[in-house]
Design a binder for these strands. Structure first.
Lengths: 231, 231
DNA sequence: AGAAATTTGTTCGTATGTATA
DNA sequence: TTATACATACGAACAAATTTC
């Protein structure tokens, strides 16, 4: 806790952030709810409208709220964007390589597999099986891309750990935004090469049959295959 | 890419963010450098000072810059805070439990171990060994806490994956900020119980001797021990 | 050491485009 | 269509902290 009441005075824009966060925590504001107008908030908190706007901009940037011109500010609670933003900032600012990114993604999937064999719901097992079928029988490159994506995402979600899920989703977005050609090349190779298909089969079998060994082996081969596509 | 040139016009505050990010990427701005004054930026970008401030506030909130009253805005590039903020938001807003947090932390450490046995530098191996010694011979609870922390952090850093490092650091901060009593209870038990000491020994042996099996076994027992302390 | 200039922090007033009834 | 509420954006002013001379 950095700012106790003891301390002199909080910055005006921080007041807005704390207030909104508090209202959400106390259950007075739920996703979809509309916030009071900027002028009203300013009066309530005893600060200027500009300060209210600074605070709301930050909340918007953090994914807590979203503003609609002429209408108002609404609670959204979608943290995928700020996570993606932060990770992509690290990626671009620190000049990190694609390999580290893929490596971390492999890490998260491997851990998701550990958890998925224990916690995957029946519905998730059915889902990942359907995505596999759709992936194998896909005709267009776009379809393959979509179902490959959905398959991996289902694995992650089967871990039932929200931190892992959010982090992975952000990582995926970063890859899509900054390395557009990357995934395309891999998917393209799927048509002719059956190796990637097999890895997906093993991966799914691991989840469906709660067979950690098979699942991990599938993942290992999967990323081994991906690593070929350096540049 | 969301905002192509096709689209009408970017919001003024977004202009500031893009500009600063571009300057950093092009090498014109490095950590520690001072940004132009708010008025000057406003004139350069053809927007008002208020809009400049909104953009700068967001950059500050993202960890790209930091402002000093009366002095100016400086490049900082410290992403630990925004990552911690984002993860703690997920924690508080989604009402997640402590178990998921600990579980994810275990996941990251396990993956760090996988990488550390391959990539740990000689210096890091020496470091983690020293932290172990200091931990085992520590007298006060505070010392035990510090060295336990440093030991685990060294393991993470030995993975040499910045995404993993940043994510783990954020997670640790969340735990410290929101679950203050948690770690204390565990550390307290170390004095009388030698089990935790042994897990740390195995963990360090794994890293130093590049012995994945031993390292993972140490980690497994370590978190198995921690899981006992559910309230 | 002290005064002046510079810079961020904060507020108020005003004009404009947008959504909704 | 009109009227109202609202977010968006700008400009000017003063306060507070820092730097500079």
């Amino acid at each position: 806790m950095k700012n106790s009441q003891e301390n002199v005075k909080e910055k005006p824009y921080q007041l807005v952030i704390d207030h909104v966060r508090g209202e959400i925590l106390h259950g007075n504001l739920k996703p979809g709810d509309r916030l009071p107008g900027e002028r009203e908030l300013a009066e309530q908190l005893g600060i200027s409208r500009n300060s209210v706007r600074e605070g709301l901009r930050i909340l918007e940037n953090m994914g807590v709220t979203s503003s609609q011109h002429g209408a108002g500010h609404y609670i959204s609670l979608n943290f995928d964007e700020p996570m993606t933003e932060t990770l992509s900032l690290i990626y671009t600012m620190k000049g990190m390589g694609r390999d580290d990114l893929t490596q971390f993604r492999y890490c998260l999937e491997r851990e998701a597999m550990h958890l998925a064999v224990d916690y995957a719901s029946e519905q998730q097992k059915i889902m990942i099986g359907k995505h596999l079928e759709a992936l194998l029988s896909a005709e267009t490159e776009k379809d393959r891309y979509e179902h490959d994506m959905a398959l991996h995402m289902t694995l992650i979600e089967a871990s039932r750990n929200d931190y892992l899920i959010t982090t992975y989703r952000a990582l995926t977005n970063v890859i899509e935004d900054y390395i557009p050609v990357f995934r395309g090349k891999i998917i393209e190779g799927m048509k002719s090469n059956h190796k990637l298909e097999d890895t997906h089969r093993m991966l799914v079998m691991g989840v469906v049959n709660s067979d950690l060994r098979t699942g991990l082996e599938g993942l290992s081969r999967h990323f081994e295959y991906i690593r070929q596509f350096k540049d």
